[in-house]
Design a protein around this nucleic acid. Sequence first.
DNA 1: CGTGCCAGGTGCCAT
DNA 2: ATGGCACTTGGCACG
Lengths: 256, 256
Amino acid sequence: MTGFIIQNPTLEQCLKAVKMGIGARRLLIMLGELRVDYFGRGSSELDYGERLLIVKGDGSLLIHRPTNVEPVNWQPPGSLYRAYVKRGLLVLEAYRKRPEERVRVTFRRVSLVGVYHLKDGAEFKLYTAEEVMKKAFIKRPDLVEKGLRVVMEEKRLKAGLVDCFCVDSSNRPVVVEFKKDRAGIEAVDQLSRYVDELRRGNPEVRGILVAPSITKEALERVRSLNLEYRRLDVRRCIKVLESMEEPIKPLEYFES
Amino acid sequence: MTGFIIQNPTLEQCLKAVKMGIGARRLLIMLGELRVDYFGRGSSELDYGERLLIVKGDGSLLIHRPTNVEPVNWQPPGSLYRAYVKRGLLVLEAYRKRPEERVRVTFRRVSLVGVYHLKDGAEFKLYTAEEVMKKAFIKRPDLVEKGLRVVMEEKRLKAGLVDCFCVDSSNRPVVVEFKKDRAGIEAVDQLSRYVDELRRGNPEVRGILVAPSITKEALERVRSLNLEYRRLDVRRCIKVLESMEEPIKPLEYFES
DNA sequence: CGTGCCAGGTGCCAT
DNA sequence: ATGGCACTTGGCACG
């Protein structure tokens, strides 16, 4: 990792670092007292306060307040930058075309500016809950219903993308939709759209919503739309998969 | 803004800074070569690479790679921390109960550690597109249909939260749902749920989906469900509001 | 490029 | 706490 940092830089030093850092597609970090104006898909205003600003090599901009995971303002990768000093203020503007959006950051004071070159070629491997459920179901469809056979994963309909298209023990087509979290009304409607489309060709089509739990309203709707709900949680699925292949290991227990 | 920064700290210095920073609910910034293991709602693995780590005073954790707006791993506010040195590695663990989740960050090298206390009391004012549309509509319901009168904003039904409940020129009730972006099928279904519930009491109830545009499938569904679609974009709404009160000013044109 | 859909979504506000 | 939902959602995969 190469880079440098300047504490309490002068505005000129700072401007130079900013231009150099962004120009060289490095990681730029700044701590200072700043305000933010944004206009684009929406618009926002944030008066002066002490915050952390980050510009990444791909043109992403992040402005973080002292709390929360989400940045208060940001700009996506590919944004273009302009920086200048005006009346004792350091201004950094990020611009993106399509959709047209601008973020303007005005620094009243800069406590820290750093420019670093990060090397990071590692692959990020994420195991999502839905992926786990689906995998376990494909290996063991009886987790949902005895005699079920998977015909297609990811069947594409006009109404959208079906998670699993199956046939039951009496050869009736079954659409299976997975939700990793408690299923709400939108989940039922989503399944309903698929089943509706298929029932036009064959009124025998069944629809099963598979989730660890379901809201009261959603369950009512499942019944009124002649669909079905089967409980299945991720924990169970992990166990099933562990017994069949290399496990997804949890971290060991956290003590304190 | 008070704080300090150490470049190329020893592991011991680093551990001390981390403990102190998190303990005092300060902003902690670290640059280094690290790996991340996560287990909770999902699970993930990321081998060593050079990244930026941030812990905020509220317990939020962010780990940023050199690209993208989103952190590769994170932990929400309120997380609990544990840090220690083991076999020449600095380990930082963030834990949250409910849902139970753990992130473990293992540093192989630390290039920078900083602890700062940020003061930021400013109010963030965001003007969202949906808000703008709604405001404009309330001032000028004829933007959607002549003779429309707003009875209630945000009417609560079992089926959900209606954006605007209105009456038309012939006293028929009208449910109006706004979408700031191109309306898709879910938007139609959402409106449909509200209208369904109300039509049980009064089959005359109308439902209007208001959006800048609509997908082909969604428009078909609007028709088949006996609902309506009216085009309205945010630009037009801004103009209407500008002519009536203090404008939401865009930043001036961006040159470079 | 648009369209659809998931996400460890996060955040906000309601009951 | 649970539920409903918007978000400058971001990000990905696919036609």
